[in-house]
Design a protein around this nucleic acid. Structure first.
Lengths: 359, 359
DNA sequence: TCCTGCCGTGTAAACGATTACACCACTCCT
DNA sequence: AGGAGTGGTGTAATCGTTTACACGGCAGGA
């Protein structure tokens, strides 16, 4: 109704009670007579009073806020993750402050720093490719931190992540079955679990099937599109270029697509392409991209649960979920339906289903 | 180094000075002897002191934070916008708290409420399709608010947006030139400027060229994929279905794609498709999607500048930028290069260029 | 009647910073 | 020598809440 600068003191005066009573009504913390309650509520309404969360946080030493630092806000994987985190946090009564590290340790640190200064109750971190002193100190200092999607070596932090080893194994089998023999992998930074482990799983899958693992087919990028493109350029310039490439995330797959198209090569004719991460438009690409889908919704929700558990003093353990393979046409699988009359039911983690967002 | 619970008082004690001096060093606000400064800095280091932004904000009545409420975090348009806002805000010394309204007025209000409680210095709002009392009260109460991307009728709020009338006109000309005569438009909610104005521009462009505007070809959605799909279903079920469809945003275009594919129709053979908003993967679709690109980076940056100007007491005026048409193959344009050996230079607002993200 | 307990309420002390004001010790000028 | 200015510092008030503690009144049991 009125100006927005009223404080408890004003409310108390208008309602003819003390500030303590106002506070008690606002938090319904103790017994207050119906009479007082009504008068306070009326005064609040009349003054357009809005509680000052800053002062409240100062006094209670809790902000009701968790920080989420994601790797790259332009990466739909993180975007979807942020959405899931937000939903679950809101349900648990927390607000989320999102920070975008842009895959750069310095920006990550910037965000961690301001989030800590703002006294978030806990921190959800998708760590960038480096163990910075700040991150080390932060986890050491007892601030509730949970790693999401990725881990860093040498730090004892609860982590929520998806294991794609089985899916990668399946994908390798798929490619070999389709006659591909020169399989390449473009991984993320080796220090990140999501970089190292995916490469390892890939190599293990080849080995398990008695296939050689050629070091020149193991490329590394930084999870950004440009690095995917560069990696593809190096691979395609090899004397014996690969006939199948698996990209370590969806952005590098996009970069790979760029390079393959730019060279006038066809997919899957000249080279098969598959991607880690499944995103809504993959089914609409030419050809539809075979991908490994992570349970993004569950990842986000579990992470929030783990963090709030830590914040509220409960014990938490590591959470590992499973990713799974979604076969489409980009590896040479015969396309059974050129113009499908039913929806491709590739996704399946509960929400997004091919570009149709939110139920 | 040590525990993270030190306060200015502790620092003062260790440094052998008063809290005032500590504060002065921390804000380098007044002259402090080199001697004292050094001792304070040493104490800060030794105690691992981290300034409490909550207390600071309470005292200074400023949080150094701006709130950004976007329509839908799963929509890449908003994601890119958020990125731009964040960059500019960070450069201006502000942190950004992102809220995701999910295109729902109640969630928008939820976020506006908590952001105001947390005393953000200003609010960047992409309003949802309804003028809620809270939004009305907020702008009336003098809180610095700037609308971004969209306006609401009846509210006098500085707005930063892109005008697509010229681009739509150009697109209509493009379609007519390619022989399309039954043009349909799937708009967003009529109450939003981004809904209404795009429809109007579309109708005006047709009228200007002496083409009839058929009301049954003017569909409305809610900027989400599902509504685009539903709209397409209605359009394609008409006795005389359109031979070209323009979607009012990228998600509805995705939904349109879904429906067209599900019916076994081909693009552009059976129906041409174009979209408002350009996103990194459009060039990789089958066929590459013709789209109207908004100057997203500039939009975000201008909005932050407008808001910080308001926050810091300067006058601000409306900002209107221009969108532009990016022709690809989805309307029947002969594809000059099936396998381009140069990059499609569709985008051009400075940063993203096809899928390659960040320079 | 007096004591005990409970209910509803108010007073005042925190929380951790910033900052107005006062103060001291100089130096420099007249 | 005395006054004015200045540079460096400390004391204490303040921001808007929450909450420990105290207190008055009233009911019920002995």
């Amino acid at each position: 109704m009125a100006e927005g600068k009223a404080s408890v003191k004003d409310v108390a005066r208008v309602a003819g009670v003390s500030v303590a009573t106002v506070s008690r009504v606002l938090n319904d913390s103790a017994t207050v007579s119906a009479e007082s309650r009504a008068r306070v509520l009326a005064a609040v309404e009349r003054l357009g009073y809005r509680r000052n969360a800053v002062a409240r946080s100062l006094r209670t030493a809790a902000t009701g806020t968790i920080g989420l630092v994601i790797g790259d806000i332009l990466n739909p994987f993180f975007t979807e993750l942020a959405r899931a985190v937000e939903d679950e946090a809101r349900a648990a009564g927390y607000a989320v402050v999102i920070g975008n590290a842009d895959e750069r340790p310095d920006r990550q640190d910037d965000y961690v720093r301001t989030l800590l200064e703002r006294r978030v109750d806990g921190l959800l971190l998708c760590p960038t490719a480096e163990v910075t002193p700040l991150v080390r100190d932060t986890v050491a200092s007892g601030t509730p931190v949970v790693f999401l999607d990725r881990t860093l070596p040498g730090l004892d932090v609860p982590t929520v992540r998806a294991d794609g080893a089985d899916a990668i194994d399946e994908l390798v089998g798929h490619l070999l079955r389709l006659g591909r023999r020169r399989l390449a992998f473009v991984s993320g930074p080796a220090i990140l679990s999501t970089g190292r482990e995916r490469t390892d799983a890939f190599a293990a899958a080849l080995a398990r099937r008695g296939q050689p693992v050629r070091p020149e087919y193991l490329e590394a990028g930084d999870f950004q599109a440009a690095s995917g493109r560069a990696a593809l350029a190096r691979l395609l310039d090899l004397p014996e270029p690969p006939d199948a490439v698996v990209a370590g995330d969806n952005l590098m797959a996009l970069g790979a697509l760029d390079e393959i198209r730019a060279r006038g090569l066809s997919i899957p004719g000249d080279v098969a392409l598959a991607s880690y991460d499944d995103v809504p438009w993959f089914p609409h690409l030419d050809p539809p991209l075979t991908a490994i889908a992570q349970p993004v919704q569950e990842l986000g929700r579990s992470a929030v649960r783990a963090l709030t558990d830590r914040v509220e003093g409960r014990e938490v353990e590591q959470v590992t979920l499973r990713a799974r393979l979604v076969v489409r046409g980009s590896c040479g699988e015969p396309m059974t339906r050129r113009h499908p009359d039913a929806r491709d039911t590739g996704h399946g983690d509960g929400t997004n289903d091919e570009g149709s967002v939110t139920a």
